[in-house]
Amino acid sequence: MVQLMNRTETEAVVSPPEAPVREAAKPVVYDTKQLNLWYGSHHALKNIDLPIRENEVTAIIGPSGCGKSTYIKTLNRMVELVDGVRTSGEILYRGRNIFDAKYSVEELRTRVGMVFQKPNPFPKSIYDNIAYGPRIHGIKNKKILDEIVEQSLRGAAIWDEVKDRLNTNAYSLSGGQQQRICIARALAIEPDVILMDEPTSALDPISTLKVEELVQELKENYSIIIVTHNMQQAARISDKTAFFLNGEVIEFDHTDKIFQNPADQRTEDYISGRFG
């Protein structure tokens, strides 16, 4: 019943997934179809349809509690760490349903890296932090690990800052550096997609800028999905933006379209700061 009611409601407002495109549409990496999610009896995500394309930065914005973090955590099934979570619908990653019983979460998470809200390096050396992913996937060769560590740190634009102290504890770095270490750590597993859950909310403005620049560089090689409650950030760095409200996707379109000419009144209200 709930599903039916919501369905009619969402269909009326969500712009069609194949929104007007100015260039040839890139292949879809993550295709979310009629996703519903409940925490116990709380219906947190309602009939989400969201095609996310390759080599783009997709920003997810919305007020607190709108389900944006829940959604991004569903993409690598991290949300299942919470007890009492139920889902329906499907999320196709490269054509395969991630909720399929035969799809192991470990395999999915090897392809999909994640950067968290609070920098969460391991209490280990910088080197061991970056080498963690490759090591759990069975790489033991010291020379290969060295190369992965350097390449990942360069990729996260922090190599020059830490190359002389790879053996110091990652906790000795500043918050902004720790977050880039975490990004480097995610790069080290050579993912296809990088999920970022408010990666700059705990950082100062300068570190935020560095991470934003980094995101721009990374999209050349990765598909990036970033949750942010900083609308300027979404406008600055993303190609597409999805606006979430009360667990529904209100609008999903090109970022400049969303910010300059939103189709839905609620999107406009949120973006112009009238609520949220």
Binding site: M78, K118, F122, I136
Partner: peptide
């Protein structure tokens, strides 16, 4: 042990056992 380092480990495709032993 903070939950967020466990999540970091799971997020890279580590199994529960690998996370327990290494983190």
């Amino acid at each position: 042990v903070p939950q967020d380092v466990r999540e970091a480990s799971y997020g890279m495709g580590a199994t529960k056992w690998q996370t327990i032993v290494r983190v």
